[in-house]
């Protein structure tokens, strides 16, 4: 298969899952009428269901998944660590903490844009804490330990913050923030998340060559005129913006950023820069598929999307760890 062909396939898969996400829902629709009403701008109920309920959910699945996939690939490329991921390393949990503080304090009611901004600040803080705490050139183990600590701390702080809210429902919403969901989101949420994710993707994509240069180590990158600390700064910022924007509207959806890069890496020749772009597509596809699955599963209440991705992702993490162990024993160069 040619290089360009692979990209077309990826786009086709994402488009198909987007369409599927719009088709799946609890209310049966007359599709002929719905499509006609959407196209003519007629304000009917089927058109409303499609445009205001299912379309935002599908779009958010793609946007959030792309952000997580891209951020995961960027972190793995930067840290040269195949286990790095915003969810596992606590960056997403920090974003959720920021969003929770902004939302339940009532600030968001005054200005909706505070929500993603606070989430991005939280993610930025988490990223900086991770880099500083783990240090440059940290081993896989150190990085994961620090990430686990940040993740646990941010999760506990989120639960604590929700318990402080006088609103009787708030406490039970810890589930949403720590095990994200795309249920009942609206176009308002798309409008909040999309600009942040696009804004975050700009520095990430601009650092593609920097990440490529890092694939032979920091010293070679320096010799090639790439300053690793500069790459780290921009990748950190891009990750925080993209993850913050995503988490602000969906809560923490873990493991997408872990699975997506690994799924696409062999198809792009393990190039870190290209992995980032392909992983955005794979992350979107994965999130959309998982979100369709939670709607089709015969559970009483709809399963949280974050539960679904964790069900897939946690065993995957275990499998990676096993391969890591075997790889070290066998002297493999990567992982």
């Amino acid at each position: 298969m040619s290089g360009a062909g692979r990209w077309w396939w990826l786009m086709l898969v994402v488009a198909a899952l987007l369409a599927l996400s719009i088709v799946v829902g609890p209310a049966g629709l007359s599709w002929r009428a719905a499509i006609a009403d959407v196209l003519t701008g007629h304000d009917s109920v089927p058109a409303l269901v499609v445009l205001e309920i299912r379309l935002p959910r599908a779009l958010l699945g793609a946007v959030v998944g792309a952000a997580l996939g891209m951020a995961g690939a960027a972190m793995q490329g930067l840290l040269r660590n195949p286990l790095a991921e915003p969810g596992v390393l606590g960056v997403s949990a920090c974003a959720a903490l920021g969003a929770v503080i902004a939302f339940y304090s009532g600030l968001v009611q005054l200005l909706p844009a505070v929500l993603p901004v606070a989430a991005m600040l939280g993610a930025l803080l988490g990223t900086v804490a991770l880099f500083v705490w783990a240090g440059r050139g940290a081993t896989v183990t150190t990085l994961l330990l620090v990430g686990v600590a940040i993740n646990a701390l941010a999760g506990a702080a989120t639960a604590f913050g929700l318990a402080l809210s006088p609103n009787p429902y708030a406490f039970y919403e810890v589930m949403f923030w720590l095990m994200g969901s795309l249920a009942d989101r609206s176009l308002d949420h798309v409008a909040l998340a999309l600009p942040c994710v696009v804004l975050g993707a700009i520095p990430l994509l601009a650092m593609r060559r920097g990440l490529d240069a890092l694939s032979l180590g920091e010293e070679t990158a320096l010799a090639l005129g790439i300053v690793p600390s500069r790459v780290a700064r921009w990748v950190g910022l891009g990750t925080a913006l993209a993850v913050g924007g995503a988490v602000a509207v969906s809560g923490v959806i873990g493991f997408v950023g872990l699975m997506a890069p690994h799924a696409v890496r062999p198809f792009v020749g393990y190039r870190p820069g290209a992995t980032m772009l392909a992983s955005a597509g794979a992350g979107a596809a994965l999130t959309l598929a998982a979100d369709v699955a939670v709607r089709l599963l015969p559970t009483g209440r709809e399963l949280q999307l974050g539960v679904m991705t964790a069900l897939l992702g946690a065993p995957f993490l275990g499998w990676l760890a096993l391969r890591h162990r075997a790889g070290r024993a066998g002297g493999a160069a990567w992982l």
Partner: peptide
Amino acid sequence: SSERPSLAEALLAHRA
């Protein structure tokens, strides 16, 4: 249910 917001009640203001 209170002056403080919650997602549960924010749902009642869905655009649709």
